[in-house]
């Protein structure tokens, strides 16, 4: 009998189904059906609510392709994503290297935790905290004027750099985390061997360390680029009037203009862009796994 139960439990969807069904049903209702509905609605003239007349149309998509505004904004968001990702690489990769290869033992653990800790606190609140640092008469302004002999006005608030700073602050822990994981896996003796064969530090970095940590870099870049392209709260708070991006326009369609079909089309175009990016990144990630 016992053997029968054991073999029975190793096979079959039938035993797995009752355990799987609730979770996947929930995901279907709250994620997969909504995403499909969004695609459907994006081809409609009106939402089919309260007996409104609606028809199928391509107008929402032709709006995107014919009006330069949406194109420009999508490009601006892609550029924002690229810039933030680059800054995260520049700032995060060296930090990950120091964590993985210089620090040891308990201090490594403690600092690693300190780096990823803010990441799990409220993103909105962290963006808001920059407002106090960046505004005129804010901390940065006051501190610089206290140190410098001449008077300067620092008012970065409501500017493009403010958006960049806030987003890099939000997402750099991702890059440190993913790079740290791949860098840590590189065997120290490999580095020693290369060095003893006469490779300079720079050569080691270029020929060995960076290629081996590429999966971490790509994973980090994808994890940062994708949400930044779809960001709207950060540009709104830190960018003010200059903070109009693709994400904020989608937000407007849903909460201000109430053109939901257009909003759905814009969201779906963003989803397509995101999927292309993830598809491009996946070969590098698969090679690592």
């Amino acid at each position: 009998m016992a053997g029968q139960v054991a073999t029975g439990s190793r096979s079959g969807l039938r035993s797995a189904l009752p355990l799987l069904l609730p979770a996947y049903l929930w995901l279907t209702v709250a994620i997969f059906l909504p995403l499909s509905a969004m695609v459907f609605f994006s081809f409609m003239t009106e939402l089919p609510l309260a007996g409104k007349a609606w028809a199928f149309t391509l107008a929402n998509y032709t709006t995107f392709f014919s009006q330069g505004l949406y194109w420009t904004l999508l490009l601006a968001s892609l550029r924002l994503g690229l810039e933030v990702t680059l800054w995260c690489v520049v700032i995060g990769y060296p930090a990950a290297y120091v964590l993985a290869k210089v620090l040891k033992g308990r201090s490594r653990e403690a600092i690693f935790l300190l780096v990823i800790l803010p990441f799990w606190s409220n993103g909105l609140v962290r963006i808001f905290s920059w407002a106090m640092v960046l505004r005129e008469g804010g901390i940065l302004d006051t501190a610089l004027n206290a140190v410098l002999p001449f008077k300067i006005n620092i008012d970065l608030m409501y500017s493009y750099p403010a958006v960049i700073i806030g987003l890099v602050h939000s997402y750099v822990p991702y890059m440190v985390l993913t790079c740290y994981l791949t860098l840590q896996a590189i065997d120290d003796s490999l580095i020693e061997a290369g060095r003893s064969l006469g490779a300079s530090r720079l050569q080691m970095l270029r020929r060995v360390i960076i290629p081996l940590s590429m999966p971490g870099l790509v994973a980090g870049a994808a994890l940062i680029f994708v949400p930044v392209v779809g960001s709207f709260m950060e540009p709104r708070i830190l960018g003010g009037r200059t903070g109009t991006f693709y994400g904020t326009v989608i937000e407007d369609q849903f909460v201000a203009v109430f053109n939901w079909p257009l909003g759905a089309a814009l969201s779906f175009i963003l989803l397509a862009v995101v999927l292309v990016i993830l598809a491009l990144a996946s070969p590098v990630l698969k090679r690592a796994a």
Binding site: L13, I31, L35, M38
Partner: peptide, 29 residues
Amino acid sequence: RYEFRGKKFLQALLFPPIAIPWLITGTAM
């Protein structure tokens, strides 16, 4: 515990909710 066809697919289905920006998921919902 169990082996069945489509298991890999079910596991892959866990990633869209994590990877798709919340702006898209939120407006879709």
